[in-house]
């Protein structure tokens, strides 16, 4: 397995400087075929084990999802949905591995105000750089999939790294390695798109006419993709976004309003300069000095 050049940064949060022209030939992707997933949670335990994370023992609240949501320690979570298919009348138990989608156009990175706290590598991975994180939580707001979580312990943001550390050593992500049914596969994005086509065609022969690849264009495609039996209804899978895109507030803040704001700042500076040019520097009069002296001595 080739290493995927994980450390070539192509984007950096809150930074104007860009990296040298990156080589994007080795974009990677994780493909999760939901139709092959048996919900065993091996991926979830592998994630905890590899990343040395500890999630406290919780309680049962009437479902199989444990913990009940992503947390600063749980970067991937099996979500279980019971759905009665109105067409066939059959029950379907839809099980989806939730976690960071590693968007090509990452909303978290766009929203992040801390320079270099979120980066995107040449291979497509979106990674959080803990040292630069200020814990503001804007990445949570910026994410169209509601993925990052802020730790109450160190006030930093956490999410799946796509095992960028393992990739650097030529290893696949821990979850993909642990998956017993090859429901999780990993490779270059091109390979995974081709693999998805095969998987989708098998699903179609099995009667799932609407089977398809989930690689949403609204975020420029993702580096974690799903094969879904019901690709026309992603929301069935524990509310997977139908058409995810970066929040308009983030877009506006980092887009139009950012430039508008900069324009206002620039204008203010210009006015200042003009004022100086016309009026010259402020001068202190004798009267001002006397007034100041009185104030300092406590007399009015």
């Amino acid at each position: 397995m080739t290493t995927f050049q994980p450390l070539d940064v192509v984007r950096r949060s809150a930074s104007v400087t860009t990296s040298p022209a990156p080589n994007r030939d080795v974009e990677v992707a994780k493909l999760i075929d939901v139709s092959k997933c048996i919900g065993c949670k091996a991926c979830q335990s592998a994630c905890l084990e590899w990343n040395d994370l500890k999630e406290p023992v919780g309680v049962n609240v009437g479902v199989y999802d444990n913990p009940h949501d992503l947390t600063p320690n749980t970067w991937t979570l099996m979500r279980f949905t019971e759905w009665e298919n109105p067409t066939s009348g059959n029950l379907e138990w839809l099980i989806r591995k939730d976690g960071c989608m590693h968007c090509e156009d990452p909303g978290c990175l766009k929203a992040c105000p801390a320079p270099g706290a979120i980066v995107q590598y040449a291979n497509g991975i979106v990674d959080f750089q803990k040292a630069n994180c200020i814990g503001c939580g804007y990445c949570v707001k910026g994410c169209p999939f509601n993925i990052p979580r802020i730790s109450q312990v160190d006030h930093k943001a956490y999410k799946c790294t796509l095992c960028s550390d393992r990739l650097a050593l030529g290893q696949q992500p821990a979850c993909a390695k642990a998956c017993p049914t090859s429901a999780i596969m990993f490779g270059t994005k091109a390979e995974m798109v081709a693999q998805a086509e095969k998987n989708v065609s098998i699903l179609k022969t099995r009667g799932f006419d609407k089977a398809g690849l989930y690689n949403p264009p609204g975020v420029g495609g993702t580096h974690v993709m799903y094969v879904l039996h019901h690709a026309d209804q992603p929301q069935l899978y524990a509310g997977l976004a139908n058409n995810p895109r970066i929040s308009p507030i983030v877009e506006m803040w980092k887009g139009v309003s950012k430039y508008a704001g900069m324009a206002v700042m620039g204008l203010a500076a210009l006015v200042g300069v003009a004022h100086y040019a016309i009026k010259g520097p402020n001068k202190v009069s004798d009267e001002d000095e006397a007034q100041a002296k009185r104030l300092a001595e406590g007399k009015s």
């Binding site: 048996i38 919900g39 065993c40 949670k41 979830q44 335990s45 905890l48 084990e49 500890k54 999630e55 406290p56 023992v57 919780g58 309680v59 049962n60 199989y64 444990n66 913990p67």
Partner: peptide, 20 residues
């Protein structure tokens, strides 16, 4: 799936995956 008989409840990861 999350457990193996009465062994794996001694392991914190498995215990978390099906706690109760």
């Amino acid at each position: 799936t999350e457990h193996f008989h009465y062994w794996s409840k001694h392991v914190s990861v498995n215990a978390m995956l099906q706690p109760e």
